[in-house]
Design a protein around this nucleic acid. Structure first.
Lengths: 255, 255
DNA sequence: TAGTGGTCTAGACCACCTC
DNA sequence: AGGTGGTCTAGACCACTAC
């Protein structure tokens, strides 16, 4: 008779109504008991259907309030430009980009000495477990948690760039500081992956159910060897990355 | 007393055991009734906890069998090289890449005339709803659904490159065909985003719960204007993208 | 205080897989 | 046949939000 389970029918019906604008972004869905009456299903079955929509990232739920249709706003992140070097300003490219977009950036920084995790060690071409410096940033835009960024520097860099270990910002930006110390990054290797957040990531980024993270791993190289590895964890619902490749003069956007 | 809900405690405990290798990738978890006994919880509560792990992409469930720890295998996709032009082979870069990796590629192609969707129209700099050619690929690796790829060409291209509308492969590759027709792509603009799959995408890619998709939108430009827009939808659990930027001679990998 | 979602239980029946 | 997960129900109590 029914072909599809009732909770999926319910989810499909609501999904269709959301798509058609019956419930536009930001709108509140009917309550569980109303839906229960409308679809002739028990409350648990209704909850099952709603949980589907939540896990698709279409709606959110808040205790005591109800279910809201999620509204999206994405921040565009240009990853193909070289960091700092092309910018006259002080500070890192994150602060620059966010400020340029008319938003208010905010970040907390933590510096630690850490043994190199295996994946990082491989990228930095050092022994797993060998000494590295970890600079960890937790970043906000207009007080919304936006991304975390963990940059690992190999232990041998410390002699040439001791300020990396100092807790606190490096005013001119770390890339520029390294360049000044004779360690210039002439190439990047970027890797991009996606997955659901770990509970820890969900906590730090205040991610609700149904929102994946974008993992951006950038390994910076001098002319001779890798000098740093940065893992940025971005909220998937708030961020989009882009790369410009080759000649884009016709776009007019490449200044 | 308990601080955390029982189903989250259960999920946390199993997550820890999975991380510690008690249940390695591919292993089967205890059945719902066993977990119910172990944690002193009703079956529904156990299911709630397991659903959490499923939605995190950590485990999968199959009716009649049980819960398995997911094992990951990722395909690396180099997006910063120019397509076709740098390869002496026939065919597209997908076929080339997959074959090089020692895997067996397979794809189905569909060609349609379609009014331009708004987001595509904007990127192609044509009117929304104007005529475009859509070439849609459904791609498999070793018979596992891997990605879908939708390429839109603006209507004005048809006069110069009529073979685009023919249903069926273009042996030398579309990029090379276009170059031969006097439409050379000299630059790409790539955008990368992530989200949970729509039900349609989940069906095509046979994606289980807890697996996001990676959306890769590439707009190819001639010296004067955009000539095509390709939207690739990749299974997030099977794919990772990378970009090489600047000079990576030290890597040794840049041939 | 009333309404909302969040957690939990106990039990029923079904669909799928293996033996 | 017996075990597994999938669906569904009915009802209980709690936590949060609004008024």
């Amino acid at each position: 008779m029914s072909e599809q389970p009732k909770y999926q029918q319910l989810a499909a019906a609501l999904r269709r109504e959301i798509d058609n604008g019956v419930y536009p972004p930001g709108a509140r869905l009917p309550s569980e008991s109303e839906l229960s009456a409308r679809f002739g299903a028990s409350r648990n079955t209704v909850r099952n259907g709603l949980k589907l929509l939540v896990s698709e990232g279409l709606v959110t739920s808040s205790q005591g309030l109800g279910y809201d249709v999620r509204s999206h706003e994405v921040f565009e992140l240009n990853a193909s430009r070289f960091e700092n070097l092309t910018f006259p300003q002080n500070g890192d490219s994150y602060t620059t980009d966010v400020t340029n977009a008319g938003r208010r950036p905010h970040q907390t920084l933590r510096v630690e000495m850490r043994p190199a995790p295996p994946d990082i060690a491989e990228r930095l071409k050092v022994e797993a477990g060998s000494k590295t410096v970890l600079r960890f940033c937790h970043r906000y835009v207009d007080d919304v948690p936006w991304s975390t960024q963990a940059t690992y520097y190999p232990g041998w860099l410390m002699e040439r760039a001791p300020r990396l270990t100092e807790p606190g910002d490096i005013a001119e930006g770390t890339t520029r500081y390294l360049t000044g110390a004779g360690v210039e990054q002439v190439g990047y290797f970027d890797e991009i992956a996606t997955r659901m957040p770990t509970p820890e990531e969900a906590r730090l980024l205040e991610i609700g159910a149904g929102v994946p993270v974008l993992l951006w791993t950038r390994t910076g190289h001098s002319r001779d060897e890798p000098v740093r590895c940065t893992v940025t964890t971005l909220r998937g619902d708030l961020n989009r990355m882009n790369y410009e490749i080759g000649d884009l003069a016709a776009l007019g956007g490449a200044e």
